[in-house]
Amino acid sequence: MLVITRKKGESVLIGDNIEITISKIDDGTVKIAIDAPREIRILRKELYKEVESENIEATKIDINMIKKFKK
């Protein structure tokens, strides 16, 4: 993991086409702006984890439900 210090208005480049800019620093929070191509998916990690766990739950098979369909 790379840890760097940036001030408001400063940026970080990832590869040739992704730029992350610090747009606001306020009382323990940081607002960032991300400039990236549309085909790059950008998700907040907590949402990604939530969707991932819901997808895992959706794929679990309830044996009792299968037995009901067999009848």
Rank of each mutant, 00 (worst) to 15 (best):
I20L: 08
E57D: 05
N64Q: 06
E57K: 02
M65R: 07
V12T: 12
K31I: 06
G9N: 12
G15W: 01
T59V: 03
K45L: 15
I56E: 12
E54Y: 10
I34N: 03
N64I: 07
A33D: 13
E54F: 05
L47H: 13
V3H: 12
L43T: 04
G15S: 10
A58K: 07
G9L: 07
R41G: 13
K60W: 07
P37A: 11
L47I: 12
G28F: 06
K60I: 12
M1P: 09
T29Q: 04
L47V: 10
I18Y: 01
T59R: 10
E10C: 11
T5N: 14
D35H: 03
V12Q: 00
K24I: 07
V30S: 09
Y48H: 11
I14K: 04
I34D: 02
D27F: 09
R41Q: 09
A36R: 11
G15F: 05
E39V: 01
A33G: 11
I42Y: 05
K8P: 11
N64R: 03
I40F: 09
I4V: 15
E57L: 01
I40H: 11
G28S: 03
F69I: 10
I25V: 11
D35R: 08
N55Y: 01
M1L: 13
D16F: 06
I22A: 01
V12R: 01
V12E: 02
I34W: 05
G15L: 08
K67T: 05
I61N: 00
E46Y: 10
E39G: 08
S53C: 01
V51H: 09
E39C: 02
K71P: 01
L13R: 15
L47C: 04
K24S: 06
K67D: 02
A58T: 00
L47K: 14
R38N: 07
M1I: 12
D26R: 12
S53H: 05
D26P: 02
V51K: 13
G28Y: 00
E19C: 06
N64E: 08
K71G: 12
K8V: 15
K49C: 04
E19W: 00
V30P: 04
K24N: 04
F69R: 06
K7R: 13
K7G: 08
K68G: 00
S11L: 07
R6E: 14
T59Y: 02
D35C: 01
S23A: 12
